[in-house]
Write a protein that binds this DNA or RNA. Structure first.
Length: 492
DNA sequence: TTTTGAGTTGTTCGA
DNA sequence: GTCGAACAACTCAAA
């Protein structure tokens, strides 16, 4: 409790915005002399249903590291970070009571479960006489700010993005407040120890590849951004599709946890493009459009909160998904016998990440070659991706499946062999993640089942033993999918 | 209200 | 090896 001669504290509730830079809720909290107490709630609902979707395993690892970084950064502003676990609807008012806070601030989220919690809390706190302010900290534009001429949400990306761009440049980012260790502070109410949340895997510790790949936290995000601007943006348009080229930004998990704001990324990329002759408008706008897809996914999720559970196009409710636990397991483990597909799934398992091109190929393989429900793939990605995001993950899976908004036409079925030859022509990426094929000449790298016996022998490969034979035949599987899609036709 | 043009990322087949 | 057409219709968004 604050003593009588100090102003009542402000409670700053962190969620998917684990940064100090360009953080409107933080900035607002620091505008007054009131001391600030920060709170993070690991939202776990004993009853299950309510609230945001519980984090997957890879995201839990990330969160541990990100909160560690955030707590250290906040310390430089004399802001304690309190950790609690449970239902936010109960915990936030509890902490308000314990601290005597007169005001609560947060940055908005856009998933249905999160919105439900936030709006219930807002009314409850206001009824108790607590001031509540929420802000846009994670999107370039609020999902309701972009509307069709008829006032409806968009369902097609291109007109959505055209309209969003026509609204002008996004608001410029605002720098983090300068550190102020002299700031008035209150002693923190009791919180839990991060280690007690068991966010890090122990038995077994599968996070070695994650540690080698990522630096969660705001500083790590800024380093990624700088590396992207220095080296990758200039070749982004041409090479972003090549998983061996290292031309993507790798910012997705940092954006997922709000360790960097899209406004910061937008402004930094535009600024760099203006200064650097190597970066053409084409490169820049290609990258901006990818941020646009993130906006579009959030737009969709906000307006269609069932996006993660229900087919966006109801006619897909009639699709004859197969129940195939063995196929699903082979896919998850990267043992499909299609090397490009297996490379992607193994990259995912090892690093918590998969290159975007490969995500499309593996998703298409699950949904079309194996005819397994996209929700099973979405759930696997949710558990294994460090950037697993309720908007991007669900919108993208539905897009690949053909059930989504502005989705790929049903007859677009990726050929997993051709995709490898086209996008990993030297095989660097595939050999890295499927090392048992490392010595196979590139002529057969994507179709080891067609390699002559002596070539396999020389490469040390025994099909069916050291590497699986294809679990489905491509052209038969393709035809089966095409036939199945007939059932989604309204006239059928 | 009606019309019109357009819609992220592909594959296969046959000339 | 390269190229264009077919694959299917449907819905969206704006005029």
């Amino acid at each position: 409790m604050a003593s009588s001669d100090t102003p009542a504290p402000t409670l700053l509730w962190f969620r998917n915005d684990l940064r100090l830079d360009d953080n409107p809720a933080l900035r607002t909290a620091l505008e007054t002399p009131a001391p600030v107490v920060a709170l993070f709630v690991l939202e776990e609902d004993e009853q299950g249903a309510a609230g945001p979707r519980p984090l997957g395993g890879a995201a839990r690892w990330w969160l541990h590291r990100s909160l560690t970084a955030l707590a250290a950064d906040l310390e430089r502003h004399a802001i304690p970070l309190v950790l609690r676990r449970g239902r936010a609807e109960d915990i936030v008012p509890e902490v308000v009571g314990e601290t005597g806070a007169a005001r609560v601030v947060w940055n908005r989220r856009y998933d249905g479960g999160g919105i439900a919690v936030d709006s219930a809390l807002k009314s409850r706190l206001k009824a108790d006489g607590i001031a509540v302010d929420s802000f846009n900290g994670s999107l370039l534009l609020e999902p309701w700010e972009v509307k069709t001429g008829a006032g409806e949400p968009y369902k097609v990306f291109t007109p959505f993005w055209r309209a969003a761009r026509a609204a002008g440049d996004p608001a410029p980012p605002r720098d983090a407040p300068s550190a102020n260790p002299e700031r008035l502070r209150v002693s923190a109410p009791p919180g839990e120890a991060l280690d007690d949340w068991d966010l890090l895997p122990t038995k077994p510790d599968w996070a070695g590849g994650l540690r080698d790949t990522w630096t969660p936290g705001e500083a790590g995000a800024r380093d990624r951004l700088e590396a992207f601007l220095d080296d990758r943006l200039a070749r982004y348009a041409g090479e972003r599709d090549l998983p061996g080229a290292e031309a993507t930004s790798m910012l997705s998990p940092h954006l997922r946890f709000g360790e960097i704001s899209p406004r910061r990324i937008w402004a930094a990329a535009a600024h760099r493009a203006a200064d650097d002759d190597r970066i053409s408008d084409r490169q820049l706008s290609k990258f901006q459009a990818e941020l646009g897809w993130r906006e579009f996914s959030n737009h969709l999720l906000f307006h269609f909160p069932d996006l993660g559970r229900e087919n966006f196009q109801p006619k897909f409710d009639a699709f004859p998904w197969r129940d195939d636990p063995d196929g699903l397991r082979a896919w998850q483990k990267g043992q499909t016998g299609y090397p490009f597909v297996d490379a992607g799934l193994r990259e995912l398992w090892a690093t918590g990440y998969m290159h975007n091109r490969v995500r499309m190929v593996v998703a298409s393989f699950l949904v079309k070659h194996l005819m397994i429900d996209w929700r099973a793939g979405e759930a696997w990605f949710w558990d294994t991706l460090v950037d697993a995001d309720p908007a991007n993950n669900t919108a993208s899976w539905q897009w690949v499946a053909g059930s989504g908004a502005d989705a790929a036409p049903y007859f677009r079925i990726f050929n997993p062999t051709t995709q490898g030859e086209k996008f990993d022509p030297e095989g660097d990426y595939t050999r890295r993640w499927v090392p048992e094929l490392a010595d196979l000449p590139k002529k057969y790298l994507y179709k080891p089942q067609e390699a002559p016996r002596e070539i396999l022998e020389r490469a040390g490969i025994r099909l069916g033993e050291t590497y699986p034979r294809p679990i489905v035949d491509h052209s038969r599987a393709r035809q089966r999918a095409l036939d199945a899609f007939q059932t989604t036709k309204t006239a059928a």
